[in-house]
C-alpha cells in the first residue's frame, strides 16, 4: 500500500508559497486595473489583508488574543475598503471588475492563510477564478494595454500554482513540517515559466499580420483546439511501477 496517511493535525498551507500566492494575486489585480479609482481600494484592501495575515502568524506564535484582534481588524479593513469602492462613482463594469478582483484576492488570502481550517482549496480556486475573470474582463472591456493584461493573467496563474502548492503541502505534511526547499524550487520554476509566458505573449503580439484569410484563421483555430486537447490531463488509475 502506498499514499500518504490522512491529513496532519495542523493542515495549515505552507507559509512561503502562501506568501508568494498572496503577492502574485495582488500583483495581478494591480496590473489588471486601469483606473486609479480601482487601484486605491485594492491597495487599502491589501493593507487589511496584510494585517489579517500578520494576525494569523501571531496566533500561531501563541499570541492568540492579540493575533485574533489583528486578524479581525485586518478583515474589517479589507472588507470595508472593498465595500467603500461602491461609493467611488465608478461605472458599472469597472466597479464589477473591481469587486470581482477584490473579493477574489480576499478569498485567495483566506484560502492560503486560513482563519478557519476547512475550505482552503475551495477558497483559493474560487478566488483565483474571480481575479482571472476580473483581469480578462478589464482587457476586454476597458481595453487595458496588452502587457498589463499579460502580466496580470500570468500572475493569476502563478498565484494559483503557488496557492495549490501551499494547500497541498499543508494537507500532506502540515504547517509544522519543514517545506522551504520544495516551496523555493517550485516557486522559482513557476516564476521562470511565468516570465517565459509574458515574453512569448508580447513577442507574438509583435508579429505583423500578413494576410486576413478566413481559411487561415480557421486552420489556426483548429490548431489551437487540437493543441489544447493534446495538453489536457485525463484522470487515470494509479499504475504500478517498478
Amino acid at each position: 500500500m502506498s499514499g500518504l496517511p490522512d491529513k496532519p493535525t495542523d493542515p495549515t498551507p505552507a507559509s512561503a508559497s502562501a506568501g508568494v500566492a498572496f503577492v502574485a494575486v495582488f500583483g495581478a489585480c494591480i496590473a489588471g486595473s486601469t483606473d486609479p479609482r480601482q487601484t486605491a481600494p485594492l491597495l487599502l484592501e491589501a493593507i487589511g489583508l496584510t494585517l489579517l495575515i500578520g494576525g494569523g502568524l501571531l496566533r500561531r506564535r501563541r499570541y492568540r488574543l492579540v493575533g485574533s484582534a489583528v486578524t479581525g481588524f485586518g478583515f474589517i479593513v479589507a472588507t470595508v475598503a472593498l465595500g467603500a469602492s461602491v461609493t467611488l462613482s465608478l461605472p458599472l463594469s469597472p466597479l464589477l471588475i473591481l469587486l470581482a478582483s477584490g473579493s477574489g484576492t480576499l478569498l485567495v488570502t483566506l484560502g492560503v492563510f486560513p482563519v478557519y481550517g476547512r475550505f482552503a482549496r475551495s477558497f483559493t480556486t474560487a478566488g483565483v477564478a474571480l481575479v482571472f475573470a476580473g483581469v480578462t474582463a478589464t482587457a476586454l472591456i476597458d481595453g487595458a494595454p496588452l502587457w498589463r493584461s499579460t502580466v496580470a493573467v500570468t500572475m493569476v496563474l502563478l498565484s494559483w500554482d503557488t496557492a495549490e502548492r501551499a494547500v497541498t503541502l499543508g494537507e500532506r505534511v502540515g504547517g509544522a513540517a519543514e517545506t522551504r526547499s520544495v516551496e523555493l524550487a517550485g516557486a522559482m520554476a513557476s516564476s521562470g515559466v511565468a516570465l517565459i509566458a509574458i515574453i512569448l505573449t508580447i513577442a507574438v503580439s509583435r508579429i505583423p499580420a500578413i494576410g486576413s484569410s478566413i481559411g487561415g484563421l480557421a486552420l489556426l483555430l483548429v490548431a489551437t483546439t487540437t493543441f489544447l486537447l493534446a495538453l489536457a490531463h485525463f484522470p487515470q488509475m494509479p499504475t504500478p511501477r517498478q
Binding site: A197, L231, H233
Partner: peptide, 23 residues
C-alpha cells in the same frame, strides 16, 4: 474569437505556456 478581440486571443498564450510546462 467570439468577440473578435485579438488581445484576449493573445491572453490565452500564458495559460498554454503553463500547460506545456506541466508536460
Amino acid at each position: 474569437a467570439l468577440v473578435a478581440d485579438p488581445t484576449l486571443l493573445l491572453l490565452s498564450i500564458p495559460p498554454v505556456v503553463f500547460a506545456v510546462y506541466s508536460h
